[in-house]
């Protein structure tokens, strides 16, 4: 899946915003389908290191749009398996080193197209080994997860690990209480969570921390009112959501903020109509795709998170999404 952006821009065609903007489902499906025909563009190879994530985003977008068949299932599985290493881990594309993020994407993709058993049938390593690859990246000392053997830790990896292991039914391979303690260490004085202990609260990191706690069955540890207060404060007067105080709104936070709120049962603390208006203003209603904000180029990353945000707040015409 190509991460080439454009060609269209979100909401740029008309200066005037009509009261009611429609979600252009068919256009978005077409947009995602044509991404892979753009291999002659420079940006295509510059984003190769994200390819497997790109496939996951495109696939998820198509599922949300109710067109899961628009991406050929077998070719998708083949591509995923071609990125696997003997260790069980996956790289971003064939020839790239294995890394937690891509291994998680691979498991998510295979889970989405109901093909996890293909790992045992024709993967370079079966399910057991994939689970073990992920589990081995947990630090015995802190409970956090590294992205690769080089040991960088990030709550993104911790969430990804638990998410993939739960899809594989292999959560027993890791030390859940230690991971939970690590997340608690990332909690901040303002009610949010950061990328590591002491780091500034950030909506993306909050999603990973709350998501991991949800999978671990430990949402009881979250101060829901305080976190919900912080998250709802991210909504700006134009309806869009930002990731941190004093930062601009961006469509991708529609997902990080709203899904975190949903996980703690506080989604109604934001104005859902205003949010859906904002997301719709970011779509290119002629060529499909969604941008980070009106006037910018569309891309698959913001397309999927915009659609997921809309689905979460119950926008009609989309398949319902699970906040975790």
């Amino acid at each position: 899946m190509s991460l080439v952006s454009g060609p269209g821009r979100g909401g740029a065609s008309t200066g005037h915003v009509p009261d009611e903007i429609k979600l252009v489902v068919e256009k978005h499906v077409e947009y995602i389908q044509t991404l892979d025909t753009r291999q002659d563009e420079l940006e295509y190879w510059l984003t190769e290191h994200l390819r497997l994530n790109g496939v996951y985003w495109g696939l998820t977008a198509l599922h949300l749009l109710g067109h899961p068949e628009a991406l050929p299932r077998l070719a998708t599985i083949d591509f995923v398996l071609s990125s696997q290493h003997e260790s069980g881990g996956f790289g971003a594309a064939p020839g790239h080193d294995a890394h937690m993020l891509y291994t998680v994407s691979a498991v998510q993709i295979l889970g989405t197209v109901d093909a996890l058993e293909e790992l045992d049938r024709r993967g370079k390593a079966g399910r057991e080994k994939v689970g073990q690859y992920i589990a081995d990246l947990q630090s015995q000392e802190t409970g956090s997860f590294a992205g690769d053997e080089w040991g960088e830790t990030d709550t993104r990896f911790l969430y990804g690990a638990l998410n993939a292991l739960s899809l594989l039914h292999m959560l027993h391979l890791v030390d859940i209480p230690k991971a939970v303690t690590y997340i608690q260490n990332c909690a901040n004085f303002d009610g949010g969570y950061g990328v590591s202990p002491g780091a500034e609260s950030h909506a993306g990191q909050i999603f990973t921390c709350v998501g991991a706690l949800a999978i671990a069955g430990r949402l009881d540890l979250v101060d829901r009112d305080r976190l919900g207060g912080w998250l709802s404060e991210r909504q700006l007067p134009n309806g869009g959501l930002s990731g941190r105080p004093e930062k601009l709104e961006d469509v991708c936070y529609s997902w990080w903020v709203a899904s975190s709120l949903a996980m703690i049962d506080r989604l109604h603390w934001i104005d859902r109509d205003k949010l859906s208006q904002f997301i719709l203003q970011c779509q290119d209603s002629e060529k499909g795709g969604i941008a980070d904000r009106p006037g910018d180029m569309v891309d698959v990353f913001h397309t999927v998170f915009g659609l997921a945000g809309l689905s979460l707040i119950g926008f009609p015409g989309l398949v319902a999404v699970d906040p975790i």
Binding site: L3, L42, E43, L50, D296, D299, F301
Partner: peptide, 20 residues
């Protein structure tokens, strides 16, 4: 470096790798 607009994730990734 990036003649076209690159998805935010790609830009963030480059920052992250240099930091690491």
């Amino acid at each position: 470096w990036y003649p076209y607009h690159v998805p935010q994730a790609g830009k963030a990734e480059a920052y992250g790798l240099r930091r690491h």
